[in-house]
Design a protein around this nucleic acid. Structure first.
Length: 591
RNA sequence: GCGCGCGUAGCUCAACUGGAUAGAGCGUCGGUCUCCGAAGCCGAAGGUUGUGGGUUCAACUCCCGCCGCGCGCACCA
């Protein structure tokens, strides 16, 4: 077990010994923000004391008297208002690394309570090109599902593609009347996009055209064979595009159950909602209204107009009989619960859909109160990608940036840099390095900022080899690998874990940081924030580089020092690789 | 108008249950390759965390007011 977890358990036991009725789940041990205070700290006693109106330092003194941590720590220090500071004994640090070297752990613990978690992410639309916005849902969702799996959860990924809806009326009309077959063969998505744009423009100015499109949609929804066949073909063509992009990104889904999958249940959902009095008819449509159980300010089914709270319902059936996405989403929750019995469903979707998810989650809880208690529904929202001008990121001509083009450009730019820095490497080798670096740069730049804020897209920043970037991390990794190449043991493994014995300050700093890998992973899983792991890995790479500058490995004077440092390098490389993998980022041996 | 989110160094961003002297990178200035990869490393300068109050032993973090920006506000998703 990792030292801080052992210390935490003992601390909780000590608190329980003093205050038997105390809830110790919040009594946590965390790394110190400043090494001068020690390696780990706990500030939980101040909160415990406060809740009981006790003197925090007095409580700390009593707890410390009962605290048995001498096998890992120097004597515990009580500081400030009631902080506990722990300093690891060198033997405990060595032991932790040795157990990792024996393969007993990689500085994280698999969860004691595995949950079944559905992760719903990416969700592109049929007949439309995947664009730069999809990188966010896809990248964040993939990083979350990878991290959750690594921690031992049972994860089910489901790509809820937009393969149904009003857009298909226009697409069908375009397909029947102005389809350019050769163009479709060349670039299906571009042709479908062209159809949609033309018909959409016509519909804006010509009500008759709009009516035609609506009729095509009605026919599709009624199961007209011709329209269904065309729709099917559009879906297949789109899926090819998705597959190409996902294959480049290294993203896989366990399921791809698009919106259309739920069609058979939509009518039943609405009927049931009506029967239970959760939805009612309004202006020809069917909608879920507020049940008044929440204060108006917190009630997503209410909106304030000129000082008055008026209904802002969620529509589940349009006045023309069509269904809305709330209906589909309700059917989807129902299906997922019945099929997989998850404890948690995570939706990685743009923050602007926040109000929709609030309504959805509340509506589901009213529809199926018992089922709702078994599952945690979470909207993991994220902000927009902006250009240098502070406006949403677009091409020079003002179009949305297509994801495929973005990845191409990342590889091209990265190839230029790689070739420049490595004139000796073969073109094939450079191309492979550039592929990994370019892709990593885009993914990492997207995962690094706090997901809720908008961020500014910058090629120069994400491809820079300095600063908190993917190239910097990959460079640190490749430098470690270079050591083992030089050693002529590219498949190096730690033969004798007991050689690990850390002395130099830079060794200690690096080793202690390795111990915190699990905290970073848990942060990602608990807060749905991959940027915690990004920052952890950046610090790890930085601490490794400091070590590397100051502590000779292959040229160490003593064999024992050399072997210990080789082991430290190997463990660092393993954590870097595993951590990047959890973010969906590949590593390379050389760059 | 109402609601939600945001506001941190010149710029781009961090800041882990409220916790100790708010941290990085870029840019600027300076140091560092007869030594395992200098795409690196070390150092300096740079802040009233939009603003005014409040709660607390302790506030970037929680509460209230104000200013500024973004987003959303039935029959698209």
């Amino acid at each position: 077990m990792l030292p801080y977890l052992s210390i935490q358990l003992r601390l909780q036991a000590a608190v329980r010994a003093i205050l038997p009725e105390a809830d110790v789940t919040a009594v946590l041990v965390r790394p110190c923000p400043d090494p001068k205070f020690g390696d780990y700290q706990s500030n939980a006693l101040m909160a415990v004391a406060k809740a009981r109106k006790m003197n925090p330092r007095q409580l700390a003194t009593e707890v410390v008297a009962k605290l048995e941590v001498a096998e890992w720590c120097e004597p515990v220090e009580i500081a400030g208002a009631g902080f506990l500071n722990f300093r690891l004994k060198p033997t405990a640090l060595d032991a932790a690394l040795q157990s990792a070297a024996r393969g007993e752990h990689l500085f994280f613990a698999r969860t004691a309570q595995p949950r079944t978690i559905v992760v719903d992410f990416s969700s592109p639309n049929v007949a439309k090109p995947m664009h730069v916005g999809h990188i966010r849902s896809t990248g964040i969702g993939d990083a979350l599902q990878r991290s959750l799996r690594l921690l031992g959860h049972h994860v089910i990924t489901d790509n809820h593609i937009g393969d149904w809806g009003t857009a298909f009326g226009k697409l069908l009309l375009g397909w029947k009347q102005i389809l350019d077959r050769p163009a479709l063969a060349r670039d299906a998505i571009a042709e479908l996009e062209r159809l949609y744009k033309i018909i959409n423009t016509e519909c804006d100015t010509n009500p008759a055209r709009l009516e035609e499109a609506k009729q095509e949609l009605v026919k599709l929804q009624a199961g007209d064979p011709e329209n269904l066949a065309i729709w099917q073909e559009m879906t297949v063509l789109s899926q090819k595009q998705f597959d190409t992009i996902y294959s480049r990104l290294g993203v896989k889904f366990d399921h791809t159950l698009g919106e259309s999958f739920y069609n058979p249940w939509l009518n039943d959902v609405v009927v049931d909602l009506l029967r239970r009095g959760i939805a009612r008819e309004s202006a020809g449509a069917v909608a879920v209204f507020s049940d008044g159980s929440l204060p108006p300010k917190e009630d997503p089914f209410l909106v304030n107009r000129d000082g008055e709270w008026i209904p802002d319902p969620a529509l589940v059936r349009k006045s023309d009989g069509g269904f809305n996405y709330t209906t589909t989403d309700l059917a989807t929750v129902d299906y997922r619960l019945k099929t997989w019995s998850p404890q948690e469903i995570i939706y990685v979707v743009d923050d602007r859909q926040g109000p929709h998810f609030k309504k959805l989650f509340l509506a589901f809880a009213r529809w199926q109160p018992d089922a709702a208690k078994t599952v945690k529904l979470v909207h993991v929202g994220f902000g927009k990608i902006m250009g240098d001008d502070g406006k949403p990121f677009k091409t020079r001509s003002g179009d949305t940036v297509k994801l495929g083009d973005l990845l191409d450009e990342a590889e091209e730019r990265s190839l230029k840099l790689v070739t420049e820095k490595n004139p000796d490497l073969s073109p094939e080798r450079c191309r492979e390095i550039a592929r990994v670096v370019g892709l990593a740069a885009v993914k990492y730049a997207d995962l690094l900022p706090n997901r809720q804020s908008d961020y500014v897209f910058s090629w120069d920043k994400m491809l820079a080899f300095t600063g908190n970037t993917a190239p910097y991390l990959l460079y640190a990794y490749s430098r470690i690998r270079s050591i083992f190449r030089k050693l002529e043991q590219p498949d190096f493994s730690i033969a004798h874990p007991e050689v690990i014995h850390l002395l130099a300050p830079e060794e200690l700093v690096l080793a202690k940081h390795l111990l915190n890998f699990g905290l970073a992973l848990e942060g990602v899983a608990d807060e749905y924030r991959p940027n915690f792991l990004c920052n952890y890995l950046y610090e790890l790479a930085g601490k490794f580089t400091s070590f590397y500058e100051n502590c000779p490995v292959l040229k160490a004077e003593a064999t024992a020092t050399r072997d210990s440092r080789l082991a430290l390098c190997h463990l660092t490389a393993t954590v870097l690789k595993q951590g990047l993998a959890a973010l969906g980022i590949e590593t390379i041996e050389q760059m």
